[in-house]
């Protein structure tokens, strides 16, 4: 029995490792190639830092990078705040209007990116807005909000709805009651929604592609430079970003690790 258990444990470990290898193989390849002396993406000819040097002199990439980051930060923050409140408000509606609002909210999620992009392009042209940074930012908020709602809603559905009523009966105004009672309970959903919004924004190519002209984010830069053959400078910037993200996560996790340990011992 115990041996059985051990075998199962080992198999699950191996499985997780295999999936992780699958997920990280291309990233590893990219990192290695960013230090490659030659331009080839097939084989490694020698170690060099020259692509990193060129990176910071490339104004186009730097501009694309800052556009990507600014839009990702603003759009994910706005989407998280609006989406969290929206999710709670929607959960308080009656069944029919809840269904209606949720179905419309799903539109940017189920809509193919191309359709969202194209429809927003039609809208901006209809509203006589110039396609550029602002239209790209608005578009990112548009497609981010539903993902926040999707991520928060299950948490709200699973929580005890009497808690908030109790808080309000005890005299807290709705907003404070929400912040004090509901928010802590749904926080994991809110955070995973925000992370998802941020990653979607950084990753987006198609919607940005249709809703801007002239202003580039990294995806658009990569797409247009892919036609010329990708420069290892792009690998270099991706390596830098990845290392930044990993160190940030490690920092955050040391804290949350401490917290989980504390929680465990209290129980």
């Amino acid at each position: 029995m115990r041996r059985n258990h051990k075998a199962l444990h080992l198999i699950s470990r191996l499985y997780m490792v295999a999936v992780l290898v699958f997920l990280y193989a291309p990233i590893l390849v990219m990192m290695v190639l960013s230090f490659n002396e030659g331009k080839s993406r097939g084989n490694f000819t020698g170690f060099s830092l020259k692509w990193y040097g060129e990176l910071f002199q490339n104004a186009e990439i730097m501009q694309a990078l800052s556009n990507t980051l600014i839009i990702a930060v603003i759009s994910s923050l706005v989407a998280t705040v609006v989406g969290t409140f929206a999710a709670y408000g929607i959960s308080q509606m009656n069944r029919r209007s809840q269904g209606l609002v949720m179905n419309i909210s799903y539109l940017p999620v189920i809509n193919p990116d191309i359709v969202t992009g194209v429809s927003l392009m039609l809208l901006f042209i209809f509203m006589r807005m110039n396609l550029g940074f602002a239209t790209m930012l608005i578009s990112h908020i548009v497609f981010n909000i539903p993902y926040v709602i999707l991520s928060v809603m299950p948490r709200i559905k699973q929580m005890d709805r009497h808690l908030l009523e109790a808080a309000m009966d005890l005299g807290l105004p709705p907003l404070r009651a929400f912040l004090k009672v509901v928010l802590p309970d749904i926080m994991p959903g809110v955070i995973s929604g925000m992370i998802m919004a941020f990653t979607l924004s950084i990753d987006d190519f198609v919607i940005s592609f249709f809703t801007t002209s002239g202003v580039q984010n990294l995806s658009i830069y990569i797409y247009s430079s892919a036609r010329r053959g990708i420069e290892p400078t792009v690998y270099a910037i991706m390596t830098l970003m990845f290392v930044t993200v990993v160190s940030l996560l490690l920092l955050i996790n040391r804290k949350s690790l401490g917290r989980t340990v504390a929680k465990r011992t209290r129980i």
């Binding site: 990753d203 190519f205 990569i222 797409y223 690790l257």
Partner: peptide, 23 residues
Amino acid sequence: VWSLFFILPMWMNFLLRTYAWMS
């Protein structure tokens, strides 16, 4: 903590990850 490792690859641009698969 472990779940973060499964989300992490999404922090890299998907066009580039796809391009890396080509290599």
